[in-house]
């Protein structure tokens, strides 16, 4: 038996399909992306016309001098710096609004409330709907004479709200008339609402599962000691599910950095809430700047790993203090 399970050729054969897929589609392309990001090329046909430009793509990316494949300066894109700021704002909104809300619901649900399973299943459901569909649905809700503005009108707050928003819009002189995705100042919030709606159930499910894993005797002991529900949550439940909270924070932040589907489908013109991914798509596939697009990919890879690491470190320190 020992001989058979240590036979090298068998081991290789079992690993081969996974290795081919993994190295061919994930690892090799990372290396290629890094190489491409130091080159300028505008045609997919052959690699012969690639010219080495050093850090030129990265400098161009952060310098507000982006050009298309004809060499013309863009007037209709935002720049990488803005896109990263937007992504980080989305990430912060997720961490500080979505996650606390999810935790609150999870804490309430896991206390054995009647209809627990039904609530759980309903709250989780939007996670399974395609983000494209959610984008289209909200595009319709945000139509200038669509559901949201009609509801605001019915509540009698529409005119007041619109003029208040108009007074805070500085990116254009156009007064706000209800085009939520048409202004820099409102587009990002308009994009966050569907994200919140879709993913709050996801984080809630993970936290709920974590809370259910808290040993019952720990909770009973605390109750016998006369702890209130709030105290139990603060001193036992939340420290116990810290590993899950860490995963949620990592997902929320890296998910925002990578986010593409919602903005791309929610808005006919993504530049009011440009994200790294939408910028990458535009530059690479609509304007054939493959090197520039690869540079964005490399920045995203580095940021995703860096944030995952940073968040893990932040959680580990506090975890050790508690233990």
């Amino acid at each position: 038996m020992k001989k058979t399970i240590a036979y090298k050729l068998n081991i290789l054969a079992f690993l081969l399909p996974a290795l081919i897929l993994f190295v061919g589609i994930l690892i090799a392309p990372i290396v290629m992306s890094v190489i491409y990001s130091f080159h300028d090329f505008k045609s997919v046909s052959a690699s012969a016309d690639m010219t080495y430009v050093g850090f030129g793509n990265y400098i161009e990316l952060f310098s507000r001098m982006l050009v298309n494949d004809k060499g013309a300066l863009f007037t209709n894109v935002n720049y990488m710096g803005d896109a990263l700021v937007n992504a980080l704002i989305l990430g912060a909104l997720s961490v500080f609004i979505q996650l606390p809300l999810a935790l609150l619901i999870a804490l309430k649900l896991s206390k054995g409330i009647r209809g627990e399973r039904a609530y759980l299943s309903i709250f989780f459901m939007p996670v399974l709907i395609s983000t494209v569909i959610i984008g289209q649905l909200w595009m319709n809700i945000y139509e200038p004479d669509g559901l949201l503005n009609s509801a605001l009108g019915a509540l009698g707050v529409k005119d007041q709200l619109f003029s208040w928003i108009s007074s805070h819009i500085h990116s254009t002189k156009m007064p706000f008339r209800g085009a939520w995705t048409g202004y820099k100042e409102t587009a990002l919030i308009a994009a966050f609402i569907p994200i919140l709606w879709q993913y709050v159930g996801y984080h809630m499910l993970l936290m709920y599962a974590g809370i259910k894993g808290v040993p019952a005797d720990l909770l009973e002991a605390a109750q016998l000691d006369g702890c209130t529900e709030g105290q139990v949550n603060r001193h036992i439940v939340i420290p116990y599910i810290k590993p899950i909270l860490k995963v949620c924070v990592i997902f929320a932040v890296t998910g925002s950095l990578k986010s593409f589907d919602l903005i791309y489908t929610l808005m006919k013109d993504t530049r009011r809430a440009e994200l790294p991914s939408t910028l990458m798509y535009k530059l690479t596939f609509l304007n054939n700047r493959y090197g520039l697009g690869s540079a964005i990919a490399v920045v995203l890879i580095i940021l995703c790993f860096a944030f995952a690491l940073l968040i893990s470190l932040a959680f580990r320190d506090k975890g050790e203090k508690v233990a």
């Binding site: 990372i30 491409y36 997919v44 690869s294 890879i301």
Partner: peptide, 26 residues
């Protein structure tokens, strides 16, 4: 090797987008 495979959990699909597009196109 296990750790190597787990790298995939953090790699964004953007990493593959341009290279795989070029490979497929060629």
């Amino acid at each position: 090797m296990n750790k190597f495979f787990m790298l995939g959990l953090t790699i964004p699909i953007h990493a593959a987008l341009v290279p795989v597009f070029l490979i497929l196109s060629r």
